[in-house]
């Protein structure tokens, strides 16, 4: 956490920056607090999980989700963040497994997937996912059959992705809430089965 540029410890450096921005009239304390309150209140993997569970129980919603992720998110009351990216939903099937990375930085649909995991932002994941996804998935404990086709989606600021995992076979009779509870943030990125 420490180190970096300048002589001050990083926390002091951030405080100093805030003070100077406030003095320059570029931000206010209230605004900073509001931004944080908003992200904590609205961004959660439960949102993406809800969309998946709805798609598993409602084939028409699944079709809309794959055709227009933004509209399908809005249907359930979720926004795609403040900067209006294109949300693409990619569906896992018996023969295709999708996974998401952002090699350039760490673009991620936070509003729907919650906080991006530390590993998603790591140099190791960013560098390796596009080159050897099977090796990466194995480190997550996910071993796919040899004939499964893997598609790696390199996201950016404009297009962000959500994986629609396969519906578990034992899910018959489960309601949407129960199904949503099966979906993890790794499942929504494609580093877990669901």
């Amino acid at each position: 956490m420490s180190g970096g540029h300048g002589e001050l410890p990083v926390a002091a450096r951030v405080r100093r920056l805030e003070e100077r921005l406030i003095a320059a009239g570029l931000v206010t304390d209230d605004e900073l607090d509001e931004v944080l309150a908003q992200v904590f209140a609205s961004a959660a993997p439960a949102n993406g999980a809800r969309m998946v569970a709805r798609a598993w129980t409602d084939p028409a919603y699944r079709d809309r989700l794959l055709a227009d992720g933004n509209a399908a998110a809005a249907e359930l009351g979720f926004g795609a963040g403040s900067h209006g990216y294109l949300l693409k939903v990619v569906e896992n099937t018996a023969s295709v497994h999708n996974m998401i990375v952002c090699t350039l930085c760490s673009c991620y649909p936070t509003a729907l997937l919650g906080p991006s995991p530390s590993w998603y932002k790591s140099f190791a994941y960013r560098s390796r996912a596009v080159r050897e996804p099977r090796g990466v998935l194995a480190e997550f404990g996910l071993e796919l059959p040899d004939d499964t086709e893997i598609r790696v989606w390199d996201a950016n600021s404009e297009t962000r992705y959500l994986v629609l995992p396969q519906r578990p076979e034992a899910a018959d009779g489960m309601d949407e809430n129960a199904l949503a509870s099966l979906v993890t943030s790794n499942g929504l990125i494609g580093t877990a089965v669901r």
Binding site: I150, V152, W153, D154, N156
Partner: peptide
């Protein structure tokens, strides 16, 4: 095409 080996694909904007 990208790495000389591997069976996956990478999709980019």
């Amino acid at each position: 095409e990208l790495w000389g080996s591997g069976s996956h694909s990478v999709i980019l904007d």
